[in-house]
Nucleic acid binder design. Sequence first.
DNA 1: ACCCAGGCGGGCG
DNA 2: CGCCCGCATGGG
Length: 284
Amino acid sequence: MGGSVINTNLFSLRHTFESGQPLTFFADYNRSRNAISYQEGNSMFDIKMVGSAEKGRLVLNAGKADGVRRRFRLDDDMQGIYGRINTDPFMDRAIRRYSGMRLTVNDPWETTLVFIISQLNNLKRIRLITRNIIERFGTPIKDEDGRVVARSFPTSEDLMEATEKELRECNAGFRDKYIRSAAEYCTNNLDLYRLRGKSYHALKEELMTISGVGDKVADCIALMGYGRLEAFPIDVWVKRTLERIYFKGRKRPVKQLHRFVDERFGDMKGYAQQYIFWGGRMMA
DNA sequence: ACCCAGGCGGGCG
DNA sequence: CGCCCGCATGGG
């Protein structure tokens, strides 16, 4: 069952959960309990955070500790990462305010689906659509009495049976065809789980062969589905924030922004992006 | 009414 | 290559 405890340094369950990453679209976070629960495969996770973000502990009522360590990147050296990306007053402020916010490690297919849904969309609707799809196509998980207590995230194979009409009913909108096509393609043509060893650029190239996955979404998948910290997805928020903080509010082509962050944040770009994304939204 | 959201594919020059 | 357009849907 559970019962285990993980000691944490510079980890905030709340900021991690509220920062718009794939897990946050289907896990349930209770702010007053400072606890989350979610389904992963056949296992249920129920995790409560105690103590401060600087030094705290995670109490697992359900779920395995090693999986939690990996999912929340608890072995990352945040002190070192902050030292690397805290390059200016804006970053300093974002790091202070969201101290302990981690990148999460998510399943490649889940991440792919979520970020296909994310295009031209907002966090609230991404969450709605994701939940609808899980509810409709996820495999039911039952208790001893046969009652459905949860549903697992639908695999690509599960989603091959989804019609465009059904996906529209999940509020997917024009993304229905991308979802269908990705489900089939990732079942029959591209095994996402075999891409883990590839270089960042090779990985991106493979991901972009999926219809509905372009440069930005591929970066999101690389970062949050494969843990590639070299990835720096630039969405409208990140673009605006970079321009505001580093270019006096002048519009800059995405290509130039990529060169800028490559130089500035180096191999910790991915973490920098998460703080710029969330800090830029919340501290505008 | 209009604009926007963790963009992408396709068509055109 | 780059540019421009349409795309569903709900909220401000």
